[in-house]
């Protein structure tokens, strides 16, 4: 690990952990997921704190992405997928009767592994969410939402002169920031990120990581990553998943320096992965 990242990690660790009680944003109690007859998650318990970055790490196929997709019910779009247990956001049951997946997904946004801008203009990509949710009543308001979202995603200066050009024409890193801006535009409380940097080069990755750190002020972020350094750099809390179990969840520093479970230790020291 370079000194630079170490120092940044130190900085992120100090401030929030010093506060006594951080409110819990989302909570999982005994969450089990089945794909047909196959069980993908075996009873997950996890608290996700407000305005923190929670990293989910673990070897591939361990269920971390599955868990992430439960948090905004993206699993609903997969046939044969069944979720048991209790998942809450601000105390509301996510799979409860009075929560609607459409409403939920506006509250819990998602950024995917591969940048997936719509084949529309940059402007329309950002405006898509606010439009369907009726968040801007007229043009000026929409312009403002678009500008603000792009600014927050750190993309405004790069694209402000070509908002009418297709979003697919941007570079990979820009596309992914566009997707983050698109998610921000509907003002979610939580942003889920499924390996957001795995398709990007190191420079673009650094950009996104900085962005995640800035977004933490206003949003709760859950990020799935294969890259342990990345988890150490951007998160305050880390949960280690293994074969459908949540093995261990603690402050990121704690997990990486002093893991309690030997499976965690094995994974972070690179014995398997």
């Amino acid at each position: 690990m370079t000194t630079q990242t170490q120092s940044r990690m130190g900085a992120t660790m100090n401030a929030p952990s010093a506060l006594p009680a951080v409110p819990v944003k989302m909570q999982a109690r005994d969450v089990k997921v089945f794909y047909g007859a196959k069980q993908a998650l075996k009873g997950i318990n996890l608290d996700i704190q407000e305005n923190r970055v929670m990293a989910l790490i673990g070897p591939s196929g361990c269920g971390k992405s599955t868990f992430l997709r439960c948090l905004n019910r993206m699993n609903d779009t997969i046939e044969n997928c069944r979720v048991e247990g209790r998942l809450t956001i601000d105390g509301d049951d996510i799979y409860g009767r009075d929560i609607d997946p459409v409403q939920l997904r506006a509250r819990v946004g998602m950024v995917f592994q591969k940048p997936n801008p719509f084949p529309k203009s940059i402007y329309d990509n950002i405006a898509y969410g606010p439009r369907i949710h009726g968040m801007a009543s007229h043009r000026d308001e929409m312009d403002e939402v678009v500008q603000k979202s792009l600014q927050r995603a750190g993309l405004w200066n790069e694209v402000k002169d070509r908002l009418r050009e297709p979003g697919t024409g941007l570079s990979g890193g820009q596309q992914q920031r566009l997707c983050i801006a698109r998610a921000i535009a509907v003002s979610p409380d939580v942003i889920l990120m499924d390996e957001p940097c795995s398709a990007l080069d190191p420079i673009a990755t650094a950009h996104i990581e900085e962005l995640i750190d800035e977004l933490r002020e206003n949003y709760t972020i859950v990020i799935v990553t294969h890259n342990m350094q990345q988890a150490a750099r951007v998160s305050q809390k880390t949960a280690f998943f293994h074969l459908g179990d949540m093995v261990e969840c603690d402050d990121t520093e704690e997990i990486f320096t002093n893991p309690r479970d030997e499976r965690t230790q094995g994974y972070i020291t690179g014995r398997y992965g």
Binding site: Q27, D47, E50, R86, D90, G91, R107
Partner: peptide, 13 residues
Amino acid sequence: LADPDVRAVSPAR
């Protein structure tokens, strides 16, 4: 692990 019934009220909610 906090008690599941403790509700944290978010302004955005």
